[in-house]
């Protein structure tokens, strides 16, 4: 697999789009968190009212920082998704997917190296979140703590889940613009359905007393999305009051199930179809 990844690196290391999107993502993670940090530091925590109301809460203090940075950075995971869609659909546009097989890769190697690329992108994104969290947390002067570090794991799940969906859509549609468009349409549609399912969950709870959890979290993207929230999010607190059962483990299992499903569908598509 290392040899395959080295070849993948040869393909992308001189690609300007790869360099630009990667830089935007790295800068984006810092800038997004800096904006949130600044809002709390310069506005919310400087106002006596909000500072007291929030119980002198700083989301970048240790304990909270892992959750804050994981949640905030999740908004720009769209950048690695775009990068992966471009890289995978390029292979079909340039017909290099065919040439790689002709030259001596198996179809399985071709699909596995793309999945590995998605995994590496997720690992690097997660490392970036850890570094960002450490940088911001140390500026607050609080003592190091790993409490809440599980949210970094949830961020990894979200990143890998998004990346796998991106690769599946790319392998299925094979055209860059079309794949990016469908990814956004799917993301929007799933969010709407998730909201409706969440409302339904609350109705079922109120009418029958059965707590099924937030059913929107059982959908492919929302399974990993639902694990992340901003610390002390009042909306989340309200939902938790109505749906008190903790389904975190189940949602993690569902997220992993979807990842396996997307991998299987990518693999099937490449192994069975004409390239």
């Amino acid at each position: 697999m290392l040899d395959l990844l080295k070849i993948e690196w040869l393909k992308i290391k001189n690609y300007k789009v790869f360099i630009i999107i990667s830089l935007f993502f790295i800068i984006g993670v810092f800038v997004t968190n800096y904006i949130v940090y600044s809002v709390f530091d310069n506005i919310i925590n400087k106002s006596e009212v909000t500072h007291v109301l929030l119980n002198k809460f700083n989301p970048y203090d240790f304990n909270f920082v892992w959750q804050t940075v994981s949640y905030t950075s999740g908004f720009i995971l769209i950048l690695p998704v775009l990068l992966l869609i471009i890289l995978v659909t390029n292979e079909f546009a340039f017909k290099t997917s065919r040439q790689n097989i002709i030259d001596g890769w198996s179809r399985l190697q071709f699909v596995n190296v793309k999945i590995m690329l998605a995994l590496i992108v997720s690992v690097i994104s997660t490392l970036l979140v850890i570094i960002t969290a450490l940088v911001f947390a140390y500026t607050t002067g609080t003592h190091f703590s790993t409490d809440g570090f599980s949210h970094v794991g949830y961020f990894f799940l979200k990143s890998f889940s998004y990346n796998l969906i991106a690769i599946f859509i790319s392998v299925l549609l094979r055209r860059t613009g079309f794949a990016i468009g469908i990814f956004f349409i799917y993301m929007g549609t799933e969010n709407i359905i998730a909201q409706l399912l969440d409302v339904l969950s609350i109705k079922i709870r109120l009418n029958t007393g059965v707590d099924l959890g937030s059913m929107g979290d059982y959908l492919p993207m929302n399974a990993s999305d639902g694990l992340l929230s901003f610390p002390r999010n009042p909306l989340k607190s309200m939902t938790s009051a109505i749906l008190p059962t903790d389904y975190t483990s189940l949602v993690i299992c569902i997220a992993i199930f979807y990842m396996i499903l997307f991998y299987w569908m990518c693999r099937r598509n490449i192994l069975k179809k004409d390239l």
Binding site: I7, L10, N14, Y15, F94, T96, R98, Q99
Partner: peptide
Amino acid sequence: TLLETPNFYHYLSAVQNLKIVAAIK
């Protein structure tokens, strides 16, 4: 093999493209 059309990475040079082919082969 040369099949139908030349299939290479458009943004890479001849040498960079052939390095990929050599690595796969």
